[in-house]
Design a protein around this nucleic acid. Structure first.
Length: 177
DNA sequence: TAGGCGATGGTCT
DNA sequence: GACCATCGCCTAC
């Protein structure tokens, strides 16, 4: 999982042709008290316990949707939370959904990017390599920064947040910037 | 510009 | 009945 998470930085995610470059992720797995899979399978998190390459979507704070990529082998219940994108495709659609003009604010957070891409719980359990979702590996080398995760209350000292160093589209800058 | 806090509802205890 | 992997508005400096 800690190999998959940094590799996602710089990859391109599209949903119905709308999306951009992944610039920030966080890693979670079932031995991690902050992870939804920590206490074992439930109806909500069962996708995380399935095979890799699928989307796990859940509602956060009753308001937002957040999207994870299930990774590693089946049963490990590890996933990577997609926290921020650099918008590159379908800017007009994202601005319309978000009601914003500011490109830097369109996808600079997990709840924001799901709204911009139109992701809801209808996308839970969908494959990442089949319509309407498309995921392309990065072509060029990138500099990946890492740090502690954001917005959680448990295991807050684990440096499992990864991001594109110096990106203007992060939910928060990395300390080393 | 940084930090506090209210909104809001599914999920688990 | 309490918890939350959030956002955005509002203050105060």
């Amino acid at each position: 999982m800690h190999e998959v998470a940094p590799d996602l930085i710089g990859a391109t995610l599209l949903v119905n042709g709308v999306g951009g470059i992944i610039v920030e992720v966080e890693a979670y797995h079932h031995t991690d008290p902050a992870a939804h899979s920590y206490r074992g399978p439930t109806p909500r998190n069962k996708v995380m316990f399935g095979p890799p390459g699928f989307a796990y979507v859940y509602r956060s704070y009753g308001i937002h949707w957040c999207v994870n990529f299930v990774c590693e082998k089946e049963g490990s219940a590890s996933a990577v939370l997609i926290r921020a994108l650099e918008p590159t495709y379908g800017l007009a659609a994202m601005r319309r959904r978000r009601g914003l003009d500011d490109e830097r604010a369109l996808c600079s957070g997990p709840g924001k990017l799901t709204e911009a891409l139109g992701i809801t719980h209808a996308y839970n359990g969908l494959a990442l390599d089949a319509p309407p979702i498309a995921l392309y590996a990065r072509k060029d080398d990138v500099i990946v920064a890492s740090g502690v995760r954001i917005g959680i209350t448990k295991a807050i000292d684990l440096p499992w947040r990864y991001g594109l160093k110096g990106s203007r589209y992060l939910s928060k800058p990395f300390p080393a910037d």
